[in-house]
């Protein structure tokens, strides 16, 4: 078990290296392939009145004249050993892990990531709880009452949930529940949990519901399909033959087994969400990792993009690992040697 985890963690680190190298390559090599130069890269980070000298200065400052592997090496070194940054009025030291300084705002990336993580974490956890409750229950009921009016309603609504984009449901939700009814917080009103749990809950309620709506839709469908499959298994018949109440048959025997594949998908979904619920954070103007990533990408802010990509990749990898470990707990047949 321990060796397995160590092996997986090692693989995870390797994967993160590959992800970072790929991101780096996309950023530096692609522009070069279409004829870009250090100067054209640097023009993205200067004002509209910039002279060639300014462009040159910035290309130097951001290290664009060095070969790509040197730049990459410098970045990696910063993560392990820290880095120095010329803030003009003095040299600023960025302690390890230093994910570099933003090309645009010149602020170190790592504190930003740490600052934004709780937002995304709050959003993801709250929404996950909601969508699991909602998705699993409706999916189960749907499967057990297959073909009924309820089943068809749930499936239609969930189709809507799967297909309606967050920027539609989110804006609609804001319009109706926040601006018309005043039940939920307006967009962009995130309050940290540590500051005021009540406000925290209030500010995240609508984002949770909107995000959970979309996910619970697909989870309802998954649960329904899984339940339909497990409910035809032999052991369900055995459970009934034992004289178990129908509810116990459905939940303890049916749902329990149907949950296993959902757990895998949940792990992936949740891991991805921790990397940033991009659209939700965008729509509700929540200062989370997803919003950070979008802003970073629109601004071509490589250090930010790298940092947030790595963080997202890290969460996906970790979520996968946890899912695999949980699998062993949930399904005794998958005990790891």
């Amino acid at each position: 078990m321990i060796t397995y985890i160590i092996r997986r963690l090692f693989a995870a680190v390797l994967l993160l290296f590959i992800v970072s190298a790929a991101t780096f390559a996309i950023f530096y090599l692609f522009p070069r392939l279409v004829g870009g130069t250090p100067e054209t890269l640097a023009t993205r980070y200067v004002g509209r009145a910039a002279t060639p000298e300014t462009v040159n200065l910035i290309a130097h400052k951001l290290g664009f004249y060095d070969p790509v592997y040197v730049q990459y090496g410098r970045w990696i070194k910063g993560i392990f050993l820290g880095a120095d940054f010329d803030a003009g009025a003095g040299i600023e030291h960025c302690p390890a892990p230093c994910f570099g300084y933003s090309f645009i705002t010149h602020q170190p990336v790592w504190p930003d990531l740490l600052d934004r993580l709780p937002v995304t974490l709050s959003l993801a956890i709250g929404a996950a709880i909601l969508w699991l409750i909602l998705g699993l229950s409706t999916g189960t009921i749907s499967a057990l009452r297959r073909g009924s009016l309820l089943d068809r309603t749930v499936m239609t609504v969930s189709l809507a949930g799967v297909s309606l984009p967050i920027f539609f449901t989110g804006l609609l939700g804001l319009l109706v529940f926040s601006y018309q009814l005043g039940w939920t917080a307006p967009g962009g009103s995130y309050t940290p949990f540590t500051e005021n749990p009540g406000d925290w809950f209030y500010s995240l309620l609508l984002p949770w519901v909107v995000l959970a709506f979309q996910f619970s839709a697909s989870y309802a469908r998954l649960t329904r399909a899984g339940m339909l499959e497990t409910m035809s298994e032999d052991y369900i018949r055995t459970a009934r033959a034992k004289g178990l109440r129908e509810r116990d048959v459905n939940v303890k025997h049916g749902l329990r087994a149907a949950l296993t594949p959902i757990l895998t998908i949940f792990g992936l979904d949740f891991g991805l969400l921790l990397g940033g619920a991009v659209l939700t954070e965008q729509v509700f103007s929540l200062p989370g990792l997803g919003k950070y990533a979008v802003d970073a990408i629109t601004n071509n802010d490589l250090p930010k993009v790298l940092g947030v990509t790595l963080m997202a990749a890290f969460f996906v990898v970790i979520a996968n690992l946890i899912v695999d470990l949980l699998y062993a707990v949930v399904d005794p047949r998958v005990r790891l040697g």
């Binding site: 298994e233 032999d234 052991y235 018949r237 055995t238 459970a239 025997h253 329990r256 087994a257 949930v330 399904d331 005794p332 047949r333």
Partner: peptide, 9 residues
């Protein structure tokens, strides 16, 4: 088939 007739979990 007791393998499939018993709950694996």
């Amino acid at each position: 088939d007791p393998l499939s007739a018993m709950h694996p979990y």
